[in-house]
Amino acid sequence: MADVAREAGVSGQTVSRVANGKTNVDDATRERVLAAMRRVGYRPNSAARALRNGKFRSIGVIISALPTFGNSRTLDAIAAAVVAEGFSIILMPVTRPTQGEVTGAFGKLNEQSVDGVVILIEQHQLDQSEIELPHGLPVVVIDSSARYDYPVVDTDQADGAAQATRHLLDLGHRTVWHIAGPPQSYAAERRRKSWQATLEGAGREVPPVSTGDWTPESGYRAGQRLAADPAVTAVFAANDQMALGLLRALHEAGRSVPGEVSVVGFDDMDESACFWPPLTTIRQSFEAVGRHAVAALLAEIAADVEAGAPVTVPTELVVRASTAPPPE
């Protein structure tokens, strides 16, 4: 740093400000210091800086090892928000969200010297009482219940499912069938319960639930059973991928969409507008969830306190050509 200061004709304190990204240096001086750094081959030592100020500018993410569309999109959004804030990101996949695995993941991230942790575990087990999150690091939880003291960020799963169900009822369908996601998924359970509550609130029959695993193949298998029942005129699938499999099964069975059966999905994948017919679905903003999660975590890190109310990101019904009134 002394070499850089001599080369740039500034004080060592000015070099330190530039190296640490401080804003109280005018642009011309900053450029002169940066040019001097390049000439003498100086690189700021992030490890030394972290030891000095206690901040590592690194965030850990504990994520389910089983990839899903929602987790992948949310992780992309988290990474973008983290990088925009000048932080790096360290991923720690867990195969099963048990107490041992979650605690072990925390321990490994502590060894990696992160400033905070985002937990992106879809499974219901995280909400069970035996899963206790270790203390000692700022934490934000995504897609889970709000029973923790940490900030929780989630899409409004219940309202999205209610919008989907009400849309089909408002079109005149007597009731709505449902292809649910896996029971261990918190999001899937929220959507299923909201679908059921919406039907019950409208005084409608609640049909038996078909259960899938988020994949088009599981939607196709459920769709084969539903297509064989002439009473089925409206189906809400818990994600767009299962809706895609359902559409194939209906087409193969000769049941037109939306002429005989209306279909609604959930997610609004980029491809959903190109399904045939284009899919009516519930749009959720993975980008907003990622931004809110990172903002909440950085606020915790800056204040060095556990705080923050749950953040619920709204959903939006996107009406396309896969829904219509029931046949006469």
Rank of each mutant, 00 (worst) to 15 (best):
M1F: 07
A2H: 03
A5D: 12
R17I: 05
R17P: 03
R17F: 07
A19V: 04
N24E: 13
T29V: 14
V33G: 11
L34M: 07
V40N: 12
V40E: 12
S46I: 00
I59E: 05
G60D: 08
I63P: 04
P67M: 01
T68D: 09
S72H: 03
I89S: 09
I90D: 06
M92K: 14
P93Q: 05
V94T: 09
V94G: 08
A105P: 03
A105L: 10
A105Q: 05
V114H: 11
D115F: 01
V117M: 02
V118C: 02
V118D: 06
I131M: 04
E132F: 08
L137A: 15
S144Q: 11
P151R: 08
P151L: 08
V153D: 03
G160T: 04
V176G: 14
A180L: 01
G181M: 06
P183A: 12
Y186N: 03
A188I: 01
E189N: 12
R192Y: 06
R192S: 10
Q196H: 13
G203Q: 06
E205T: 13
S210P: 00
T215D: 10
P216K: 09
G219S: 00
Y220L: 11
Y220P: 02
T233A: 07
V235W: 05
F236Y: 09
A237W: 02
A237M: 04
A238R: 04
D240A: 01
M242Q: 13
L246Q: 12
L247Q: 09
E252K: 05
E252M: 11
G254S: 04
G254F: 08
G254V: 06
G259E: 12
V261L: 02
V264I: 04
A273I: 12
F275C: 02
P277Y: 00
P277V: 08
A296R: 06
L297G: 01
I301P: 09
A302M: 10
V305M: 11
E306W: 12
P310H: 08
P314K: 00
T315E: 13
E316N: 00
P326T: 06
